[in-house]
Design a protein around this nucleic acid. Structure first.
Length: 477
RNA sequence: GGGGGAGUAGCUCAAUCGGUAGAGCAACUGCCUUUUAAGCAGUAGGUCUCGGGUUCGAUCCCCGACUCCCCCA
């Protein structure tokens, strides 16, 4: 189907061909970015020659003269199409539409109204656009269209481009710092014959040649720990995890996790790493350690608050974690089902209902009920407590870390406990025999950390939905 | 899975207590050599998400479906 717009544009495309112009352009490698051109003007002043390439996104025509905005990845630069300056090329200009991608070359000058402008001497059509761009003032506002046609969203809405540039720089910052600290970036299987390392439902797939059912990983944890056994002492992976669960403003079925493991470290070290990475990204990428999110001001400057799970439960739910009858009574008072449920699950539900939303400023919640933590080392003074923390910001979990369990006997016992499903809802229903074999070879004591990259990007870019920081979020077709 | 909201021109949005829909931008035709959402005059552009029902008549009311958003589990 062709709209009136498409037909009009095809007419102009044909007219360009008739003028001997290739409407789909060719190599145009000499272009400077809009930002570079501004720097050049600052250094050289008017009359400097400039070459730009980008999408034509606004046009103010005066018959024999026109001003237009050429937008590239770094921003916009005004260009001036003047018939006297362009000569015969003015006929090419007349076949241009908003949305076309052009290359222009000419001298810089400043207009009467004070705007830096390229007076175009040479015009190249690099791509004729056959569809009209969204409205110049409001951009593309329809949320569904923005997600489905992100390619339009990106060129029509500057803030969207900024968000994804920041996402890239945040991840680059993580990589750079981890590299400086001597961490080795590795890749472990996304397709696994057994899924594990977290309590979540997996996606399944099938390998035809092997006639083998496979799972998309819900976590890389059990593979990264095998690398500790192998003698790789500081490793990390930034990659996708897949969880076959609900979708919300904080959950996408595929999401990006940074996991790292450090031999001979513990969860206190992981707290320091978490603070440093997130606060460093805030400062380096966003220019401040204090950033807005929703109607909040979040201060990422280390040290973040450290509080135990039990302290926070006391603070916000008003019950002592060890006082089982009080915990159950409080859960009932909040309308939560608690009968026939393991006390650890009741506690966790109570925590989620009363504590999480209160954790606005960055907070490390440490020392979890051990039953919720089958992969974590127990507290030396209390076997019911696990050396685990989760980091919360704006009521949202952004990181999870352990002093890793490296005792194969305890690990096997924990797995078997999980298999019995006594801690329903938080179970890891797998028994990875090879992982236990690896632990028997001996894994150094270690700290492990997982950071939800999408959520960190949400926070640092003030994006209220995870879909605003994932280029192509999952939508029904 | 439950509750609420939305879907109207290419885009951003109005309107209708049931009588076949408007504006701005974009487009098209003119005029225009310094604009910043340029201006002026004119023209064209609609499966009112889809399918049923009620009605003389449905974009509007009823039922169902689809998609998206928000909240809850």
């Amino acid at each position: 189907m062709s709209s009136q717009f498409e037909l009009e544009r095809k007419k102009k495309l044909d007219a360009l061909v008739a003028l001997g112009v290739d409407p789909y352009g060719h190599r145009f490698a000499d272009a400077e970015s809009a930002a570079q051109i501004r720097e050049k003007f600052a250094a050289q002043g008017e009359s400097a020659e400039a070459v730009a390439a980008g999408r034509l996104l606004a046009m103010r025509k005066f018959g024999k003269l026109a001003f237009a905005d050429v937008v590239d990845q770094t921003g916009r630069i005004q260009v001036c199409f003047n018939r006297d300056e362009l000569g015969p090329q003015f006929d090419i200009f007349k076949q241009l539409d908003l949305g076309d991608i052009v290359g222009v070359a000419g001298k810089l000058f400043v207009t009467k109204t004070g705007e830096l402008t390229i007076l175009v001497k040479k015009l190249d059509v690099l791509c004729k656009s056959l569809l009209p761009p969204p409205e110049k003032w409001h951009g593309l506002a329809d949320v569904e269209m923005r997600y489905r046609q992100r390619y339009v969203d990106l060129f029509a809405n500057l803030e969207v481009r900024q968000t994804f540039l920041k996402r890239s720089r945040i991840i680059a910052h993580f990589r750079r710092i981890l590299d400086e600290w001597g961490f080795l970036e590795v890749e472990t299987p996304m397709m696994q014959t057994q899924y594990g390392g977290a309590a979540a439902r997996p996606f399944t797939t099938h390998h035809n040649a092997l006639d083998l059912d496979l799972f998309l990983r819900i976590s890389p944890e059990l593979y990264l720990k095998r690398l500790l056994v192998g003698g790789l002492e500081k490793v990390f992976e930034i990659n996708r995890n897949f969880r076959n669960e609900g979708i919300s403003t904080r959950h996408n079925p595929e999401f990006t996790m940074m996991e790292l493991y450090q031999a001979y470290a513990d969860y206190e070290d992981m707290m320091a790493i978490t603070e440093r990475l997130v606060a460093g990204a805030a400062l380096e990428v966003c220019g401040s350690m204090t950033l807005p999110f929703r109607d909040l001001e979040i201060n990422y400057a280390p040290p973040w608050r450290r509080a135990t799970y039990a302290e926070l439960l006391q603070e916000h739910a008003g019950v002592a974690m060890a006082d089982e009858p009080a915990v159950r009574a409080k859960a009932r008072a909040l309308g939560q089902a608690e009968a026939n449920k393991d006390i650890a699950v009741v506690i966790q539900n109570l925590f989620e209902a009363t504590v999480e939303e209160k954790l606005i400023q960055p907070t490390f919640v440490k020392d979890y009920p051990a039953a919720l933590c089958p992969l974590t080392r127990r507290h030396p003074d209390d076997p019911n407590i696990a050396l685990r923390f989760e980091a919360y910001v704006a009521g949202m979990e952004i990181a999870n870390a352990y002093t890793e369990l490296n005792d194969p006997a305890v690990q096997e016992a924990n797995f078997r406990q999980q298999l019995k499903g006594e801690v329903e809802g938080e179970t890891m229903r797998i028994l990875d025999e090879d992982f236990l074999t690896a632990l028997k070879q001996g894994m150094p004591p270690a700290g492990g950390l997982g950071v939800g990259i999408d959520r960190v990007v949400m926070l640092l870019t003030a994006s209220p939905s995870i879909r605003d920081v994932i280029l192509f979020p999952l939508l029904r077709p």
